[in-house]
Design a protein around this nucleic acid. Structure first.
Lengths: 209, 209, 209, 209
DNA sequence: TCGTAAGCGAGACGGTACGTCGAGTCTTGCT
DNA sequence: AGCAAGACTCGACGTACCGTCTCGCTTACGA
């Protein structure tokens, strides 16, 4: 993710003159991909704590030095692999409830297709006492919930949500059950439970007529 | 946790005859406590992944074998240490909103007093790819949210909650923001935000006049 | 062997009044023997360096403390076990060559019957850097070659050996090939080779016609 | 000792084509030497039984894995260290007695200069119940007494020794007193006693005029 | 005849070293 | 320069014994 040695970053620095002469053999893009793929695969198989750089190198058919040349430790490697996995995709139907239901359903399906459900708890667990990880993990997390925030903002604009509502808190409440299910029950929420989940969040528990 | 030498287990086997003669020097209760204390301390300092059995032994002033004699690996050790930390305490005021606010506030204060906020993400992260851990972790998690469930049940009984509401989902939604804050934002929710949080959960996001 | 707690040593301190009242349960002679037997057996099986006090205790059906109550460490235990094994037995035929051949043959047969050939190298090896062991081992070694020395002295008395010969050196030369075979070739000398061995020692290598 | 990576072994395989491509970083010759030196030093200080691989690693400034990569256990390590120590050096004066006296004196001086006198008993003791050790130890022992055997053969050629004499037995008898002194008396024979020792072996004990 | 003092088997105690494994770094020859 | 390979130092793993220390019991003596 935009690391300084990345040759593509050099191109971004305006024009055709590289910042410093990139002599020698260029880094293999192939190796890069193989490493990230191996990382994602292994994370799904053995989890974060079972992941070894040695294992990634072997699976990717790559020397360990090639990994360490790109990532300073296994944490940023995993973070970048995580960044490759799909996040929430914006759904805009004109109705808040349908937007939320559509987005969450799509997201939960991504959980089933990818190692996201193994990765997220591992990374979140490590994050808690690893400031270095937190620094790169948090922006990605914020980025990933942006579609959700946008849907809520549309809801405010349309008058479906009262303007004084704390949207951040609202977002937490909407994805909260997914997080709780993921971290404490080890299972993904079934997609069919998304409907009630959103309805409950929108209507609240309280009876007030 | 209910290990066979536990004197109370002996009582469960009906009557005064122990299952088998407990010969030899009995295990030191003192060492047991010292180990758990050291574990809790170190978890708060270095997290689950940074915790080493060697470090626990050293901090507790205990030989490694004394730890391995009691716990087969660091996972159940940490789980037992986790079990010692305070959970939610039931608050029964006769009003659902006040019950929930009281309980959550108390719980969040426990987060500040104890290493719970370091432990929970670490354990939840490990849980995701460690079936052995999941087996012992999940019952404890369920036990810990029981006061919350009871408050909700009282709410149903009092007519504060519609009877058709899925209480499990409701509980997830109420603690959801705490979980999200803990796992993705690395911070405990401030106690003063508990009020809006509960109000939002009870009233919902939707406007319905 | 004559350790200070030995109740029989108390008797040696002149007279019938024990130094201190030997109250309490007396030490089990049975356990003592079982420990020594187990020690000899295990030495033959696994050698000195493979011998563990734990193993001896288990084999003897005895607690470890019962061993440590009698011997301060495994070294004196092994030495005492060694002391129980047969040594050279004096043979007095009136002819030096026959005496020596008889004694050596008998000794080599003892090697075949007992774990002596496993014990001796182990103890000698340990002796080299274990002063404590050397202190108890050496007197036993001297004692064990005394029959050999006596035979040589008889040879001098009878005029079979010139009086100016250093008998200690002579004894070393006679048992030397056995030692070399034991330590460097791992095998006991075959009894039938005893004859030439003694003849060579008596006649020397040199031709002197 | 003649391990497959040894460059000289490659030469033995006739021709310039190495048996297999030696990829990766080559093993550090420096570390190898440092380990062997540390081993010899420590053997002299604490003996075989007091020698720990951990201690060798520390003294050599080397990781334990680097030791285990080269030697499967401490036994072959010690054997190789032993192989580096000086053995008997051939002395050829034209007179058997002088040859033997010269060689033995030189050898005994090597005992004083090196930890040989600590090593030999330790290794011989271990050898007795360690077949693996015996396999590598024995050829070295035979090699080391070869100068002695050659001197005896020269003695036969010159007619100083009767041809029917068993030279192996003769060699055992000549070094026997050294072995006995080393293993049972813990001391090196004083060099000045070498003369009588050889004279006795050549002339024998028996009086026969 | 009974108390008391020491012995008993069992096994936990704090330690130390074992042999293994992985982290992150370094060094080959080749591309 | 980057590459695959693999050795490097370091440090934790989980195991096995060390020599010591309780346990709940015998066992024998002397009060």
């Amino acid at each position: 993710m935009s690391n300084p040695e990345d040759p593509e970053s050099a191109l971004e620095s305006r024009g055709s003159v590289p910042v410093s002469a990139p002599t020698g053999r260029p880094r293999s893009e192939e190796a890069h991909k193989a490493i990230l793929n191996a990382t994602v695969e292994l994370l799904a198989e053995v989890g974060f704590s079972g992941l070894t750089v040695e294992g990634v190198a072997q699976r990717a058919g790559v020397g360990k030095a090639t990994i360490y040349r790109r990532w300073p430790s296994k944490v940023p490697l995993v973070v970048e692999a995580y960044g490759r996995l799909p996040g929430m995709e914006d759904v805009d139907t004109g109705c808040l409830a349908d937007d939320l239901k559509g987005m969450l359903k799509g997201y939960l399906e991504a959980f089933a297709r990818t190692p996201l459900s193994a990765l997220l708890p591992s990374l979140a667990g490590e994050r808690a006492h690893n400031a270095e990880l937190a620094k790169v993990f948090d922006p990605i997390s914020i980025e990933r919930r942006r579609p959700l925030m946008r849907a809520l903002e549309r809801g405010v604009a349309r008058g479906e949500i009262a303007p004084e509502i704390d949207l951040d808190l609202a977002a937490d409440m909407i994805v909260g059950p997914i997080a709780v299910g993921l971290f404490f029950k080890g299972g993904r929420i079934q997609p069919k439970r998304v409907g009630p989940m959103v309805d409950l969040a929108l209507a609240g528990l309280g009876i007030r007529e």
